[in-house]
């Protein structure tokens, strides 16, 4: 059945558009995997990164120092190392534990475990990146806004809720969209631990017909369209958040 889409196979050198189409159709079936691999880390990153940023902004004792030191360190580590290190740190202990516990053995051989590891690694990375986004968003609100809040008798919580956070959000939304695009592209890295996402899906089609270039083009097109869509959505959101 594959020949129907891509007749020529490896022996033909010339570039073949029909093979791109074939790979495209295989790869698009894994669209949801890439989406989960980027949306879940984005959400977790916002949920975990925001409190970290708030701690650091308001110099909460101990927590802000610990978070500050940790983030400065983790910021320097490339995403691929998050994936490789967490993959190792989760799978190897499970291998050892499997000798003693059935539960660990089951977990280790669980369907799609590499997929969950990918989500964990991307979420850790996203938390670091987004905590920095949120910190600069909080810093983007001038001190005068806090002072005006205090001068009319608002508490810090009230100031945050009705003045600071809405303004910080207007700053953060376009940056978060950029972070999201970064996560969509970055999620392709999980192919090094064998997660079947768009990129790996395209590769499986190439393993049938050895048309690698065509497969990569197909994958690239899907990522491109995804990222452009997010960018467009970002513009619309930005306009809505911006009060002139």
């Amino acid at each position: 059945m594959f020949e129907r889409f891509c007749r020529k196979g490896a022996e033909s050198v010339a570039f073949d558009v029909s093979c791109v189409w074939f790979s495209f159709k295989v790869a698009i079936r894994y669209l949801h995997v890439t989406l989960f691999l980027s949306v879940i880390p984005l959400a977790l990153g916002v949920a975990l990164g925001t409190p970290i940023a708030v701690c650091r902004k308001f110099r909460v004792r101990i927590a802000s120092q610990v978070a500050g030191a940790l983030i400065t360190f983790l910021k320097g580590i490339p995403l691929v190392l998050y994936v490789l290190i967490l993959n190792f740190m989760i799978l190897k202990p499970l291998d050892k534990l499997a000798e003693y516990s059935v539960w660990a053995d089951k977990l280790r051989l669980m369907d799609k475990i590499e997929y969950y590891i990918g989500i964990i690694a991307l979420s850790a990375y996203a938390t670091v990146v987004i905590s920095e986004t949120m910190r600069s968003a909080l810093n983007s609100v001038p001190d005068g806004q806090y002072e005006a809040c205090f001068s009319i008798g608002l508490t810090r919580g009230q100031a945050l809720r009705s003045i600071v956070i809405p303004q910080a959000l207007a700053f953060a939304v376009p940056v978060l969209c950029n972070n999201f695009i970064g996560l969509i592209k970055g999620s392709s890295i999980v192919y090094v631990i064998g997660v079947l996402d768009i990129l790996n899906g395209a590769m499986t089609s190439a393993q049938i017909n050895y048309r690698f270039l065509e497969a990569y083009i197909a994958a690239a097109l899907i990522y491109w369209v995804l990222c452009i869509s997010v960018e467009r959505a970002s513009w619309i959101l930005e306009k809505r958040f911006k009060k002139r």
Partner: peptide
């Protein structure tokens, strides 16, 4: 304030109302 410090995310009437309603 010297540089006004109006709330940038609120219009004129909301700026005046904020302290009354919230505080």
């Amino acid at each position: 304030f010297q540089n006004y410090n109006l709330f940038n995310n609120k219009n004129a009437i909301e700026n005046v109302m904020e302290g009354l309603v919230t505080a």
